[in-house]
Computed example of a mutant assay.
Amino acid sequence: MPVTAAEYAAGAVAQGLPEEEAEGLAALFEEVLDGRNAYLADGVREALGRAPRGFAAYAADASAAWSPTS
């Protein structure tokens, strides 16, 4: 459920977080969640020279690599 930074800070203080810390975290969350990270970039392709893959594919490959052979 979306909440404003002020609502988050008020809830955190109500749960016992010091007001100064709650306000600092709320400001951080506001900046990080301002939409600048709402798109995908091509950093994996540029850095590794291949298309990115999902976690399930990674986990399947890693599992196979670490499975003991009989």
Rank of each mutant, 00 (worst) to 15 (best):
F29D: 13
A57F: 00
A22Q: 02
A6Y: 00
G11W: 06
A14G: 05
G49Y: 13
G11V: 01
A38R: 12
E23T: 02
A38G: 15
V3R: 12
D34C: 12
D42M: 07
V32Q: 08
A10W: 00
A59Q: 05
A14Y: 00
R50D: 03
V13Y: 02
S63N: 05
D61C: 01
A26E: 05
D42I: 04
A47E: 10
E30L: 15
G16L: 02
A64T: 06
A26V: 02
A9G: 09
P18W: 02
E21Q: 12
F29N: 09
A10F: 01
A51L: 11
P18Y: 01
A57N: 00
T69H: 07
Y58P: 05
Q15W: 03
V13Q: 04
R36F: 07
Q15Y: 06
S63G: 12
E31S: 12
Y39A: 15
P2N: 13
V13L: 00
P52L: 09
T4K: 02
L33R: 07
L28T: 10
A22M: 03
A59K: 06
A26T: 08
P18M: 02
E20S: 08
E21N: 11
A26F: 03
L48V: 03
R50G: 10
N37Q: 13
G35I: 10
M1T: 07
D34T: 12
E20M: 09
A22H: 02
R50H: 10
L17N: 03
A56N: 01
Q15A: 15
P52C: 10
A51W: 07
L33W: 14
A56P: 00
A41E: 15
Q15S: 13
L25S: 12
R53Y: 04
S63I: 06
P68L: 14
Y8T: 12
A47L: 14
A51Q: 10
S67H: 12
E21Y: 13
P2R: 11
A5Y: 04
D61V: 02
